[in-house]
Amino acid sequence: MTDKPVQGRMTVSGTDGVVVFLIGMRINNWWAVRSWLPMVRAMPRMLKELAREPARGLLGVRAIPGLRNFSVLQYWESREKLLAYASDRSGEHRPAWAAFNRRARAGRGEVGIWHETFVVPAGSYETIYGDMPPVGLGQARGLVPVGRRGERAAERLAS
Rank of each mutant, 00 (worst) to 15 (best):
Pro95Ala: 04
Arg156Gln: 03
Val111Trp: 10
Ile23Met: 15
Pro133Cys: 12
Gly24Asn: 02
His115Thr: 14
Glu80Leu: 10
Pro44Tyr: 11
Ser35Lys: 08
Leu82Trp: 03
Gly91Ala: 06
Val146Ile: 12
Gly136Leu: 11
Met43Glu: 03
Leu83Asn: 11
Ala158Asp: 08
Arg108Tyr: 13
Leu59Val: 07
Val119Lys: 02
Thr2Asp: 03
Trp114Thr: 06
Val20Ser: 09
Gly24Pro: 01
Val146Arg: 10
Trp97Asn: 15
Leu157His: 09
Ala104Met: 07
Glu151Cys: 09
Asn69Tyr: 04
Glu92Lys: 04
Ser90Phe: 03
Glu80Tyr: 11
Gly142Asp: 00
Leu37Val: 15
Ile128Cys: 03
Val40Tyr: 14
Tyr85Lys: 09
Val111Cys: 15
Thr2His: 00
Met39Phe: 00
Val33Tyr: 00
Pro65His: 07
Ala153Leu: 02
Asp131Ile: 08
Ile23Thr: 13
His93Met: 07
Arg56Phe: 01
Arg79Asn: 09
Glu151Asp: 15
Asn101Val: 07
Asp3Val: 10
Val146Met: 06
Gly17Asn: 11
Met46Leu: 08
Leu50Met: 00
Arg45Val: 02
Asn28Ser: 05
Gly147His: 12
Arg34Gln: 04
Gly142His: 04
Met46Arg: 10
Thr2Tyr: 01
Ala154Trp: 13
Gln74Lys: 09
Ser78Pro: 02
Ser78Glu: 03
Gly150Trp: 06
Arg41Thr: 04
Leu22Lys: 09
Gln74Ala: 11
Ala98Thr: 07
Ala86Arg: 14
Leu137Ile: 11
Arg102Trp: 04
Ala99Leu: 04
Gly142Met: 03
Ile64His: 06
Ser71Pro: 00
Arg94Ile: 12
Thr117Arg: 07
Leu83His: 07
Val119Pro: 02
Arg156Trp: 13
Pro121Gln: 01
Gly91Lys: 01
Met132His: 10
Gln139Asn: 07
Gly24Lys: 02
Leu67Pro: 07
Glu77Val: 03
Gly14Phe: 02
Gly107Ile: 06
Phe118Leu: 09
Lys81Trp: 08
Thr127His: 08
Ala154Arg: 15
Glu80Thr: 14
Glu151Gln: 13
Gly147Ser: 15
Thr11Phe: 04
Leu37Ile: 14
Val12Lys: 01
Thr2Asn: 09
Glu92Ser: 05
Pro145Phe: 02
Trp76Pro: 06
Arg141His: 07
Val119Ile: 13
Lys48Ala: 07
Met46Ala: 05
Phe70Lys: 14
Ser90Gln: 15
Pro145Met: 00
Gly66His: 03
Ala98Lys: 15
Pro38Val: 06
Glu116Phe: 07
Pro5Ile: 05
Arg45Thr: 02
Asp16Tyr: 05
Leu67Cys: 13
Leu82Asp: 06
Ala99Asp: 11
Ser35Glu: 15
Pro5Asn: 00
Leu143Ser: 03
Asn101Lys: 14
Gly138Ser: 08
Gly138Glu: 06
Arg152Ser: 14
Phe100Arg: 10
Ala32Thr: 05
Ile23Leu: 14
Arg79Trp: 09
Gly8Thr: 12
Glu92Ile: 01
Ala84Asn: 13
Trp36Ser: 10
Gly136Tyr: 05
Arg26Leu: 00
Ala98Ile: 11
Arg26Glu: 06
Ala51Ile: 03
Pro145Cys: 01
Tyr85Met: 11
Ser13Gln: 06
Ala154Tyr: 11
Trp31His: 07
Arg45Phe: 00
Glu126Leu: 01
